[in-house]
Nucleic acid binder design. Structure first.
Lengths: 342, 342
DNA sequence: TGGCATAGTGTATACGCTTACTTTATTCCA
DNA sequence: TGGAATAAAGTAAGCGTATACACTATGCCA
């Protein structure tokens, strides 16, 4: 069928192993032979079969991506394309390909990962999220399979290379920023509570609230899915309170979009009636109206560093795990203002 | 190292081939043996090695994705995540994984595809775009490698399964819509002219203009990249004309975002001073201010059908190529209005 | 000139699985 | 009861590459 190493060997009048060594650019092959073999390869249009190579080699030159939910949902949030952009940049530099398995349920996703790992379809994995007691993460650790995490692992963080923002600090500072604008009733709209990022930011928020001597009210804390719908739900709950917040710290831009649209429907003006500060600074956050004030967490870099760390893990397995902290930066736009006098 | 088919065979006291047949659920194995083997597999935690399987099998259960430019750029446009969402949905249903190779230059991307194909890394390919005289497409045809195209192939369209909107008709109808609002100076902001989608829509635009007896002016036609920056460039050019358009047909929402932001900076009001109608109806197009009137081309379905068609190609190679036309629909929002009296 | 490095290449096997071909066991009919 | 037909499982040969080990030829020195 297709041309193999043997065909090349025959044409170049050498042994298959010599061809293999030419491909690997082995220094023990003379320049003359290399040239001869390369000519034969060109002439035949030879390309190594990757499966055969992987099999003999135990390496696939591919890295696996694990998303928190079905790719179906995840791709609705620009966070993921952007993070993949970062990953693919470095993957490409080192000639790795990306491999995604998908699934709808927890179980399906888990099975997909097991297939990736046991089936040796990839050399390592980037986890695109960090969750409390995550089955997949435990599994990867048990198997001692190379992986890195975007976000802070819930446990064993010292032994797992991970890339993260300082979410505690970020949330604290942002809450303080809102407080400095005169807000005293600040709501927190978080994602699922089993995501470590939600927890960290919530704790940062709490810290700032307590430091400022403000009351920490449970009814100001809402948790929803990382989607527009989540944001919409959240606002409805918060506005139904008898003493609704004057400012919201929202954990994700897409949720903020939902918040904005619902507030708009309800005739609540942003930032006059209520201020909004969110996280991620997704490409489109400047396009909403009003444009979103948002914390740029450098998503691209999170992906880039995660993949870079993974490739290091793969190439030098003895190397110690490390933590990379990606800086954040508040991008002030139009959704925050001083609290309006009561 | 890891547990192989032989280990299972030994434990179950059968031959390796029997285990293999159990995996493939071959009817020639008795239920009793199947049970025995399955127990052994569970006990050992056996998972087939995919590389070995692919090698013996000549199939990989993976489909390759080819993007028009570096993934880096492409992922800035929500079109791609959305299309991948569609692809991944059906891929998952049939237990296929997705495989992406990336590259920065034309050559790198081409090389990546060659590696996918010759290296037998994937069973088939979905081309996420269609371009005039595309090297990759020619290559795939030469190699008789299974692939499908999102968009209309520039040539040999009859022999290539492809999924497309009727872009000619869509653009024509949309232009007619703008004309019906009283616009006579209508600009066209297209993407790169070597993309078939640009050509088709431009032709539809032209048809409508000519049908209406309006002058077809070259200076109203601008071509830029499918990015925000592209839209920004385009507006600048168009507004510099002595008789600038009163309405714009923009080929892509992200470009429209760029158009909007630039118009905003220039103090030009949309839709009062200039109307804007664009394509794609990306998730966030309703969030801009004013919210975008846009043609919903059903991106998800484009992806879904493309992957479905590909799997059919892979499974029954004799089957004839087909064309799937995905319907479009105008979503009216806030960027189009009747022409303001001069 | 014999002996020994050393550079360059070939041989053979392993990687883990599939599958065509064979063999063995069982059934059933004349 | 012999033997054909059928069912069930085993044997062994790939799939295309990598690599440990073996071998040859050359050069150099004593």
């Amino acid at each position: 069928m297709s041309v193999t190493i043997k065909d090349v060997a025959k044409l170049a009048d050498v042994a298959p192993s010599t061809v293999s060594r030419v491909i690997a650019n082995n220094p023990r092959i003379s320049e003359k032979t290399k040239r001869k073999v390369k000519e034969a390869m060109d002439y035949l249009g030879y390309h190594p079969n990757f499966n055969a190579r992987s099999l003999a080699n135990r390496s696939t030159q591919a890295i696996g991506l694990v998303m928190p939910s079905s790719a179906d949902k995840a791709f609705q949030n620009p966070f993921f394309p952007e993070v993949i952009r970062g990953i693919s940049t470095i993957a490409h530099e080192q000639e790795y390909a990306l491999y995604m398995s998908t699934g709808n349920t927890e179980d399906e996703i888990f099975e997909g990962v097991v297939r990736m790992v046991q089936g040796r379809r990839v050399d390592g994995i980037v986890m695109l999220y960090s969750r409390v007691d995550d089955r997949i993460m435990c599994y990867l650790q048990e198997q001692k399979f190379p992986f890195t995490v975007i976000g802070k692992p819930f446990k064993n963080a010292e032994s797992i290379t991970h890339i993260d923002n300082d979410n505690f600090k970020a949330a604290q500072e942002m809450t303080e920023y809102l407080i400095s604008l005169g807000h005293e009733r600040i709501g927190f709209v978080g994602g699922n509570l089993n995501l470590v990022v939600t927890i960290d930011r919530l704790l940062g928020y709490e810290k700032a609230i307590r430091n400022a001597g403000l009351p920490y009210k449970d009814e100001y804390i809402v948790h929803e899915e990382f989607l527009k719908e989540g944001g919409q739900e959240a606002v409805k709950e918060l506005l139904a309170l008898k003493d609704p917040p004057s400012a919201l710290l929202v954990i994700d831009d897409v949720m903020s979009f939902g918040v904005l649209s619902t507030l708009n429907e309800l005739g609540v003006s942003v930032p006059d009636d209520i201020s909004l500060l969110s996280f991620n600074n997704v490409m489109l956050s400047e396009l909403s109206s009003p444009s979103l004030s948002s914390v740029d967490i450098n998503i691209f870099k999170l992906g880039y560093e995660a993949a870079k760390g993974l490739l290091e893990c793969i190439q030098c397995p003895e190397k110690e795990a490390k933590r990379v902290v990606v800086p954040f930066q508040l991008i002030e736009r139009q959704t925050c203002s001083k609290v309006s006098g009561k």
